[in-house]
């Protein structure tokens, strides 16, 4: 049976504000799942708290809607227990880069074979528009009493510094491109990070769809807006680390690229390195049968309920 995009939809009403960037991301996720023909029971979508946290409920695949900022630890636990599962973590910018920043960094160190999507709209939507860690210094979105006095964190640069091996940016209103990036991210061997720029039509009145489209910058010759977004793959950008000696240069280049913002905002793959061993491979080096008998697949008791472990062997080490 061929799975269609509509097979990944639940009857639950998607209660995001009209025009919310989450719709684009949600559609792209369903398209990517259909493109990859992933069985809903084999997929787990793990989310945090915030508007984006509701994504799993609208998606017909296993869904785990967790705590604020804790998306990644839950996702890792699931993946470690059963590495056969396709784990996709999706959380907000406040979730991943504010309250969960410690997990963001430390998950990078592990290079687990899963995907992490950050819905980046620069505000805390569900609590009515406070500044998120990605809101630029000095900006005053509409519900802020005063302009933001914190510097913004650079998610792409932070992912590079933390060890993510696939780092990309997408734009929620370019659904086809987002889908394409997500497919690449899911297929990537290792930990993939996709930061998705997402207008919040209700609370972010600065980084709006019109702003991304460049409607404030009309080309004097054509009379048309000059879009801020451009695609890396349409330039001569090459993000792939093909040998270990390329790693440093590609990292530095991606870091430099990650600082482009304002008039020119690159989307696409910034960095990809499959030469780094995954966490699963690292565990397998110590536990050779890990993939074949992961924690969730080990027989822990026989038919009588007796434990399978011969603890007597272990007791021998403690004998006096």
């Amino acid at each position: 049976m061929v799975l269609k995009m509509s097979d990944y939809k639940t009857p639950v009403f998607a209660d995001w504000c009209p025009g919310c960037g989450n719709f684009g991301i949600y559609t792209a996720i369903k398209m990517a799942l259909a493109e990859l023909q992933l069985d809903p029971h084999r997929v787990v979508i793990v989310s945090g708290i915030g508007c984006s946290g509701k994504t799993p409920h609208f998606t017909f695949a296993n869904g785990v809607h967790t705590l604020h900022g804790r998306t990644l630890p839950f996702a890792i636990g699931i993946k470690l227990a059963n590495p056969e599962l396709e784990v996709i973590a999706a959380g907000g910018d406040g979730d991943g880069l504010g309250i969960g920043a410690g997990h963001f960094v430390n998950t990078g160190r592990r290079n687990i074979d899963m995907t992490y999507i950050v819905h980046d709209n620069a505000v805390y939507g569900l609590t009515k528009g406070q500044a998120s860690p990605t809101l630029k210094l000095g900006l005053q979105t509409k519900s802020l009493p005063k302009p933001n006095i914190n510097e913004a964190v650079n998610p792409i640069a932070l992912a590079l510094a933390s060890g993510y091996t696939f780092i990309a940016r997408a734009y929620a209103y370019d659904v086809r491109h987002t889908e394409n990036i997500l497919v690449q991210a899911i297929k990537h061997k290792g930990l993939a990070f996709v930061n998705i720029q997402q207008p919040c039509p209700t609370y972010n009145d600065i980084n709006t769809k019109d702003w991304y489209d460049g409607k404030d910058r009309i080309d004097s010759t054509t009379g048309k807006p000059k879009p801020r977004i451009y695609k890396l793959e349409e330039t001569d950008w090459d993000p792939i680390v093909k040998s270990p000696d390329e790693e440093l240069d590609k990292t530095v280049a991606a870091l430099r690229k990650s600082r482009e913002w304002g008039d020119k905002i690159p989307i696409g793959v910034f960095y990809k390195n499959e030469l780094v061993p995954t966490y699963e491979e690292r565990i397998s080096k110590r536990i050779p049968f890990y993939i074949e008998k992961p924690p969730s697949k080990q027989e822990i008791s026989d038919e009588s309920g007796a434990p399978t472990v011969t603890i007597e062997e272990w007791f021998k080490k403690l004998k006096v």
């Binding site: 839950f74 636990g77 699931i78 993946k79 227990a81 599962l85 992961p294 969730s296």
Partner: peptide
């Protein structure tokens, strides 16, 4: 908790 949900 995540691991427990997956059955370990």
């Amino acid at each position: 908790s995540g691991a427990a949900l997956a059955g370990a």
